[in-house]
Computed example of a mutant assay.
Amino acid sequence: MESHTIKGLERVGNIEIYFEYDRIDDSLPTLVLLHGFLSSSFSFRKLVPHLIKEYNVISIDLPPFGQSGKDYRYTYSFRNIAKSVVMFLEGKGIRKFSIIGHSMGGQISLQLIKSYPDLVDHAILLAGSGYQPGYSEKMKMVSYLPFFSYGIKRYLQKSGIEKNLKNVVHDPAMIDDEMRQGYLGPFIKKHDIFRALGRMLRDKEIDLLKEDLSDIHTPCLLIWGRHDRVVPLSIGERLHEDLPNSELVVIEDSGHLLPEEKPEEVYQLIKGFIGVATPT
């Protein structure tokens, strides 16, 4: 079957959400892809061509990243972002799906499952972050100061795209101009994202605690890169211990950016975990 990609912006409450919908067949299971911090649906570009062989795939740019809205009035807590994702999917008539969350997308996936357990069939966390506290009150107060957003912008510019990319992959030889532009692009077009990041700093809640995670019975596949320097394997091992219905798989010769580094292996693991629809 041939697929076609629908792209667009959808207003959900007081924010616009950018999506890419790779649709094959309405009878197939639906996968919802949520990217990580400072990223976008671009990070799944190597994984999606594999997934659309077996599934309907929706990639979402989480506010304020990628092409989604960066409205300063939006509440950028992970719980509210998860709510916006659910509202977006309901607007598309999607009320049952599996979710794939990379890094921060894993944190938001867990918030979504916790709040809406009946909507999610399976969860796949690709180096899903967790156990992070909220920011200090002092940091939150500082974020209100004039020019704070310029400070965030200056920090990211100083750290540099090359250094950041080398930190998230195991083999730096895979970094090319397409990759550099794909991750840097959204940050050179508008200053609004830096103001929104200040708001996100204030809105972020404490991650789900052990007792919260123990109440999640959705089947969870945790996939980790052996050499992840951003969200170390120890986080995956801890999540595996705290999530009662979870499985942990470690991929060798890989870092944090699993969808970029090992798309074929990730696809095979997802397919084995979820299965595929049986034609009627």
Rank of each mutant, 00 (worst) to 15 (best):
Y155N: 06
Q107D: 07
E260L: 14
V57L: 10
S68E: 11
S129L: 05
S115G: 08
K262Y: 06
A82M: 03
I81F: 02
L248V: 11
Q181S: 15
G128F: 01
G255R: 07
H256M: 07
T5K: 10
D177I: 13
H35W: 06
I17D: 01
V57N: 07
V32W: 09
K7G: 02
G255L: 08
L110Y: 03
P146V: 13
E137W: 10
Q157A: 11
I216R: 03
S129Q: 07
P64I: 10
G151V: 03
P259A: 07
R195W: 04
L248W: 08
Y135E: 04
S43T: 13
S246F: 04
G134F: 00
I223V: 14
K262A: 11
K210P: 00
R79E: 04
E16D: 14
Q107I: 13
G128Y: 02
D253A: 13
F194D: 04
D215H: 05
S41N: 13
G134S: 06
F37I: 06
L209M: 08
M141F: 11
K138H: 07
I235W: 01
N80F: 02
K114A: 04
R73G: 11
L9C: 07
Y116K: 02
G13L: 04
V230P: 02
G236W: 05
Y144R: 12
G128V: 03
K189L: 15
G272D: 04
H4I: 09
D121F: 01
D253T: 11
K271F: 01
T280G: 13
Y76H: 06
L248I: 10
S254A: 14
E211Y: 03
E162W: 07
P186L: 14
D177H: 14
S234E: 15
R195C: 04
N80G: 02
E162R: 09
G69L: 13
D22V: 13
G66K: 07
L89C: 07
H170L: 12
E261D: 12
S109I: 03
T218N: 01
I52G: 00
K163C: 10
V250L: 11
K46H: 12
Y21M: 12
K114R: 11
E178T: 15
G93T: 06
V48W: 01
L233F: 08
L112C: 06
G182C: 15
K271L: 05
G272E: 05
G272R: 08
S234A: 14
P259R: 05
M174S: 13
L257K: 03
V231Q: 03
H170A: 13
E264P: 00
F97C: 10
G105E: 04
L9T: 05
D176A: 14
K140H: 06
K92S: 07
E54L: 06
L239K: 02
